[in-house]
């Protein structure tokens, strides 16, 4: 394993120390292990708290700041945070108007956030949970833990965060978060697996001409192994799955996220975005906004995901609202 680290056991805390040193806008509680806006709690503002395993940076800590999250709880690498952490963050940012937990749909995340929400309720904090489950590589059936939360998490956090920033009520903020999630579908391909500091070797090994289709962001293998094909064909296949799960009529508007999983260079992501734009143009779908880059990653995994979210005027307006976080910033 080759990484810029000291001890595998200290990666998360040391990276948090670096985040704290780099961003005076953020307050990092290294004891309780959460990242919060320095100006939290903001009285009367609905607070957004998210979290999950580390290794997906900039998600979530990089999305804390004005217009997006109030706090993030990073767990160990690929391990959901513990209830204590989530509770501490929830209490730290609650401004009296309630707290929205944005939770990616993984068994561990769901259970730990649920325990934390119960503890927060015991302390009189109103918590609403928005479950993100956009990854259509997984079938949503009783036979699985359900679709995973991936790229749409960024859209949920941005759009719900903007509504909270402008004074939305707890129910409204949670509702738009759920709407965004329901309007989103994602699909990912991996060329290589990422390596966690603790395991020290890649999550899976792939021959030089094979890829994993329908991977998640935790180094787990995907639904199936395929031959490496030209980007053009991979994009078409991914969009076929996405548009089957989330049919779009001609004239509908979307936000597209072409997301790198950490080890894929930007030049490839832009090439992919060009292909996505071509296919959606053929289908008469209008891309109103888009984002191309490494946002919801899986350590150093070479791979990419495509997220398509059907949007309303209101969602576009909230998307365009100012945001000021380490990982996403505009208008401020």
């Amino acid at each position: 394993m080759k990484k810029f680290i000291n001890d595998p056991a200290d990666v998360v805390t040391e990276a948090l120390a670096g985040l704290a040193a780099a961003h005076p806008d953020l307050r990092v509680d290294t004891a309780e292990q959460y990242v919060a806006r320095a100006d939290a709690p903001r009285p009367g503002k609905v607070a957004l708290v998210s979290g999950g395993g580390s290794g997906h940076e900039p998600l979530h800590g990089g999305f804390v700041g004005a217009g997006m999250l109030d706090a993030a709880c990073p767990g160990e690498v690929f391990t959901s945070p513990v209830p204590d952490q989530i509770l501490a963050a929830t209490k730290a940012v609650d401004g009296g108007a309630g707290v929205v937990h944005v939770v990616k749909n993984y068994t561990g995340d769901v259970m730990n956030f649920q325990l934390a929400a119960e503890l927060a309720a015991d302390e009189g904090i109103a918590v609403e949970t928005v479950l993100v489950d956009d990854d259509v590589a997984v079938e949503n059936s009783t036979w699985t833990a359900g679709r995973r939360g991936t790229g749409a998490t960024l859209l949920v956090e941005k759009i719900a965060g903007a509504l909270a920033e402008e004074g939305g009520k707890l129910g409204e903020v949670a509702a738009i978060g759920r709407e965004v999630n329901a309007a989103s579908a994602s699909f990912a391909y991996a060329l290589t697996a990422g390596t966690t500091p603790a395991a020290g070797r890649p999550g899976f090994e792939l021959p030089d001409d094979e890829i994993e289709a329908g991977v998640g962001i935790h180094g787990e293998p995907g639904r199936r192994r395929e031959r490496l094909r030209p980007a053009r064909e991979l994009v078409r296949s991914a969009l076929d799955v996405i548009l089957e799960a989330q049919p779009l009529d001609r004239g509908e508007r979307v936000i597209v996220l072409v997301n790198g999983l950490g080890g894929t260079p930007l030049i490839e992501l832009y090439l992919i975005y060009g292909e996505v734009a071509t296919v959606l143009a053929e289908r008469g779908v209008e891309i109103s906004r888009r984002l191309v880059g490494n946002y919801v990653t899986s350590l150093d995994m070479a791979g990419m995901s495509i997220t398509v979210t059907r949007v309303t005027d209101e969602m576009i307006r909230l998307w365009d609202a100012p945001v000021r976080t380490p990982g996403l910033r505009w208008g401020a």
Binding site: E76, F78, T196, G203, F204, G219, P221
Partner: peptide, 19 residues
Amino acid sequence: LTRLDAAIGDGDHGVNMRR
């Protein structure tokens, strides 16, 4: 435990249990 988890999960079960 970690190796078993790497095969069908996310490769952290051993580390989790040890911690």
